[in-house]
Amino acid sequence: MKKLLLSLFASALVATAALAQAPTTAAPAGPDALVKFKTESINFGKTTLNKPVSVDFEFTNISKQPVLVEAARASCGCTTPKWTTEPILPGKTGKVTANYSANSVGNQTKTIWVKFKGVDQDKELKLNGEVLTAAPAAAAKTK
């Protein structure tokens, strides 16, 4: 009986020591722990067909380390994102610019996903508005 208890105690001690030495892998912080966007959704209002629209999504680095935007991609080929390419120091600002070609009439919603270095989760931004044909847009301006 003593051997059994001693054996169980030794096994528990070894298992505890192994767990204590195992590296802990904390889940990487999401983008909201690094940056704060002024707004995550921009409504560009109304524009006319084939009259491009450009909007800026500004953000501030709220972390204690420099932040780098690795990439940004859009939900379709009609939207082209550009971003601040140099590291953004703590407390400083950067931006993601979305250029939308406005090549389709109607209500539009476009998504831009921003990838920050060292973060697995992308930040999702929304751009929306209405694209009118030339005639209704001119009539809307006169009202």
Rank of each mutant, 00 (worst) to 15 (best):
K3M: 10
K3H: 11
K3W: 09
L4E: 15
L5D: 06
L6Q: 10
S7P: 00
L13F: 07
V14P: 01
A15L: 15
L19Q: 10
L19W: 14
A20F: 13
Q21Y: 07
A22W: 14
A22Q: 14
P23H: 04
T24S: 15
A26I: 06
A26D: 08
A27P: 05
A27C: 10
A27W: 13
P28E: 06
P28A: 08
A33Q: 15
L34I: 05
K36S: 15
F37L: 08
F37Y: 13
K38V: 12
K38Y: 07
T39G: 03
I42A: 03
T48A: 11
N50M: 05
K51M: 09
K51Y: 10
K51E: 09
K51Q: 11
P52T: 08
V55Y: 02
E58Y: 09
E58T: 11
F59G: 00
T60P: 01
T60W: 02
N61L: 01
I62L: 10
I62A: 09
S63E: 03
S63P: 02
Q65F: 01
P66F: 00
L68M: 12
V69Q: 03
A71V: 06
A71T: 12
R73G: 08
A74T: 00
S75C: 09
C78M: 04
T79C: 13
T80I: 14
K82S: 15
K82M: 11
W83G: 00
W83Q: 03
T84R: 02
T85M: 10
E86N: 12
I88S: 07
I88F: 12
P90K: 06
K92W: 01
T93M: 09
G94F: 03
K95N: 07
K95W: 01
T97N: 10
T97D: 00
T97E: 10
A98N: 03
A98P: 00
Y100W: 12
S101V: 12
N103K: 10
V105K: 10
V105A: 11
N107F: 15
T109V: 14
T109C: 09
K110S: 09
K110P: 02
K110E: 14
T111E: 05
T111Q: 04
F116A: 00
F116H: 04
K117S: 13
V119L: 05
Q121Y: 05
Q121P: 00
L125N: 00
K126T: 12
K126E: 07
N128H: 13
N128P: 01
G129M: 06
V131I: 10
L132Y: 08
A134D: 11
A135T: 11
P136L: 07
P136Y: 05
A139G: 06
A139W: 09
